[in-house]
Design a protein around this nucleic acid. Sequence first.
DNA 1: GATGAGTGCTTCGGATTTCGAAGCACTGCC
DNA 2: GGCAGTGCTTCGAAATCCGAAGCACTCATC
Lengths: 108, 108
Amino acid sequence: MAALDLFGRRWTLRIIWELGNEPLGFRLLQRRCDGMSSSVLQQRLTELQEARLAEVLSDGNYTLTPLGHDARESLGPVIEWSRRWAAELADAPPAAAEGADDGRHNRS
Amino acid sequence: MAALDLFGRRWTLRIIWELGNEPLGFRLLQRRCDGMSSSVLQQRLTELQEARLAEVLSDGNYTLTPLGHDARESLGPVIEWSRRWAAELADAPPAAAEGADDGRHNRS
DNA sequence: GATGAGTGCTTCGGATTTCGAAGCACTGCC
DNA sequence: GGCAGTGCTTCGAAATCCGAAGCACTCATC
């Protein structure tokens, strides 16, 4: 359950996903995550390192540890599912309100 | 990416997981989720319904839609990974700070 | 039919988290 | 030196989360 808690924090899943593609520097990673807040990114990066999912390379970039890559791979089915989900929602568009990306968040 | 955003909200993953086991009423579901706040539970339940992942049964209980069960199954590998992760952390306990469940949250 | 218990759900003040603009120290480059 | 880019920190404002309290309703039990 602790894992569901860790992943259930804003941006955590996204960061793991982005870092899984390739090592990234702080600012570039931030841009990949829709320009998320630097303070939160720093916080998440620290949490991820404490959880031994991420680490800093000798060149200063951030990467996933082997354990982190494992985690990211376990996310594969979720990504696959999300495609089906998107297709499903496209077929049956409700009145309004999408659930995800419904503008409830504030990215000013 | 919208899926990672939807799942990256506190309690969402947990709720999907709990509902996947069996249909549950509001208050019981709340208890299963470590007694999470009822206001947030209501919010999540609404989001999940809008996203067509959850629905209300004729008897008033909440369940996962077929699409929702699909999502929950896609979470399987994540759960498996979390076991390996827990084992790994148990082997190499750092100085302090666990990353997950590090007391940063407030459950008064 | 009153009482009590259980339900789904809402309200609301306060604690916590997230945001984002600004800035600091440092490195490389012209 | 001046300029740009980096990782990272600070801080006030906004959004989110919390949890106790309560409402309307159902269903037994008295």
